[in-house]
Simulated scan of single mutants.
Amino acid sequence: MADTPSRNGAAMPESLEHALAATEFIDHASAEVGQFVADVLPDGGRDDKDRAVRLYYAVRDKIGYEIYGADLSRRGLTASRTLRLGRGLCIHKSLVYLAALRSVGIPGRLVLTDVRNHLASDRIRTYIGGDVFHYHALTSVHLDGRWVRATPVFNKLMCRLYGIEPLEFDGTADSVHHPYRGDGARHMEFLHEHGEFDDLPHQQVLDGMRHHHPDIIVGPDRDRFAPGSLVADATGRSA
């Protein structure tokens, strides 16, 4: 079958169509996503690589990273809702990045993994039952005919507070969590990959969180994380 045109006018293989679609969670036709992209790319960008890189840094640093209070409900995980709040968990921020990419015709997929985070605070370790976090999210981006991975999650402030080097992305090499930080201390390692997804498998993620991290899941519908503050954890201040 013939290729179909993408938003930027180029032919798009049918195998990539699902990686461009608007979904319940990747709601790239929303006003919030449209305004975010317009603010980041007022000139439209030079090419797909330039657009992907600029959007990456905007999501990484303009949206705060916060695990506490994270809303895992269907509404709470939409890209538009995260943009309204201005903060989110790795899943929220990855979905925003995918929405922004797809809005300018760049295919993207959600990657879900289990990781061991050696820099988790004592409070987080208690809440999640150790240092293994299930369903950590990042993205896979289709640029120049191939897939590269990008993790627009930890903003500069969070990296500084926790002694982590911010992850850079140039559109050509994978940007994933470094196993070591500058002083050699272990930061994060990937333990298991659940796969790449054209859309968020919401029930799978929610069931997995409830099963693996029951102590941090609260609320009448058990679909949000307990309140708190990563900044307070890092600085010793009260949340």
Score class of each variant (00 low, 15 high):
G208D: 02
L101N: 01
S30D: 03
A38R: 00
N117R: 09
G171F: 05
R46Y: 11
K49W: 14
N117H: 12
F133I: 12
A173E: 13
Y57I: 01
H194Y: 11
H177S: 14
G171M: 07
M12F: 09
D61G: 07
A239M: 13
R181I: 05
Y65I: 06
D170A: 06
R87V: 11
R102C: 04
L191F: 09
S140E: 11
G76M: 07
T78Y: 02
H28R: 00
A79L: 00
D122A: 15
H134T: 12
H134D: 14
T172I: 15
I63C: 05
K93E: 06
L206E: 03
D48P: 06
E17M: 08
D61Y: 05
D48Y: 04
D174F: 04
R224T: 12
R74S: 10
I216M: 15
G45D: 04
R46M: 10
L157H: 15
L83E: 02
P152E: 01
A22K: 10
H192C: 05
E168C: 09
A232N: 15
V205T: 06
D223W: 06
R222I: 09
G208M: 01
N8P: 02
R84F: 11
Y127I: 12
D27F: 07
R125Y: 07
Y135W: 14
D48W: 04
A234V: 02
K62F: 13
G171N: 10
E196V: 05
D207I: 12
L89N: 13
E168A: 13
G163S: 02
A10T: 15
Y97P: 01
T151I: 02
A29H: 14
A120P: 05
R224W: 12
P13M: 00
H187K: 15
P220T: 14
E189L: 07
Y57D: 04
G88D: 04
F154I: 12
I67D: 01
G184P: 06
E17D: 11
D207W: 08
